[in-house]
């Protein structure tokens, strides 16, 4: 039956399930991010530089790290590549900071929450946009590096395969933390710049002071305040590298706890948003 114009016809079509609705948010969000020049540049440069520097570390290992055992523990070296920290922070700031803040600014949350999705669906979809992009820096280089190392004949394939599995674990842990923390910061403001600044503040405001305090006082407990140091402690344990500073179980608990807390806080923030303006 036509409403008025011949171009509009009422058509009741069966609606797809919630997973498809969330999928639509994810694909549209990824497409939007990958069309933004800043996102493309940061993602491209971040993934390329991290991968290349990790491969170079492997290639030049005999010169750079004389005496380093060429076994599974060697892959802690690329996993501790400082470029990962820098580019994960940069990507979180450039790509992730606006994911919720922009919706708050444009008040588009109203459009989302008046649709048949839950607040949890929305937060999950935003995490699924940012997570894969961060993993291009936190996981992909660590996966490519053992493959290249095995192809070059530096390591047997069984060691390389084990390194790939462990690298995925470590990368997902670190990327998951930054995804959750960035979304939380993004949910606190309507300005993506503020959220981006918050990401940098979180990284460098905790990592460097923690290192300085730990070294000045000789008390390594300060290092638990740094997500990067916690990640390194877990990575050391995963790859079997010697533990030097902080223990991995509390480090893992802090990383997982902070990730869960950030995710729950983001969800709680979204639950409090007004959909119908007063």
């Amino acid at each position: 039956m036509s409403i008025s114009l011949p171009t509009y016809t009422r058509r009741e079509t069966p609606l797809l399930g919630r997973s498809k609705r969330v999928g639509a948010i994810i694909t549209t969000g990824l497409r939007r991010e990958l069309r933004r020049p800043a996102s493309i540049v940061v993602t491209g440069i971040g993934a390329a530089l991290t991968t290349i520097s990790s491969i170079l570390i492997v290639y030049l290992a005999p010169f750079l790290f004389p005496g380093q055992l060429l076994d599974l523990s060697f892959f802690y070296v690329p996993a501790s590549n400082g470029a990962i920290l820098f580019f994960v922070t940069l990507m979180s700031a450039v790509v992730g900071s606006g994911l919720i803040a922009d919706d708050l600014h444009s008040m588009a949350l109203t459009l989302y929450f008046s649709r048949p999705i839950t607040h949890g669906d929305y937060v999950l979809a935003k995490a699924a946009i940012l997570g894969p992009l961060i993993s291009l820096v936190s996981v992909l280089p660590l996966v490519i590096t053992p493959i290249v190392a095995a192809l070059l004949g530096f390591f047997p394939w069984d060691v390389a395969l084990a390194a790939i599995g462990l690298s995925i674990l470590a990368g997902v842990l670190f990327g998951g933390f930054y995804t959750a923390a960035t979304l939380f910061l993004s949910s606190l403001t309507t300005r993506r710049a503020y959220a981006g600044a918050g990401v940098f503040a979180m990284t460098f405001g905790l990592t460097f002071p923690a290192q300085i305090l730990a070294s000045a006082t000789g008390n390594s407990v300060f290092l638990y305040a740094s997500a990067w140091e916690n990640y390194l402690a877990v990575a050391r344990a995963l790859f079997g590298a010697p533990q030097t500073t902080i223990d991995w179980p509390p480090a893992l608990a802090i990383l997982l706890g902070a990730t869960a807390l950030a995710a729950l806080s983001t969800y709680a923030r979204m639950r409090t948003r007004e959909v119908v303006a007063t």
Partner: peptide, 8 residues
């Protein structure tokens, strides 16, 4: 918005 509502 149609897709978020469940349309293909």
């Amino acid at each position: 918005m149609g897709r978020v509502s469940g349309l293909d």
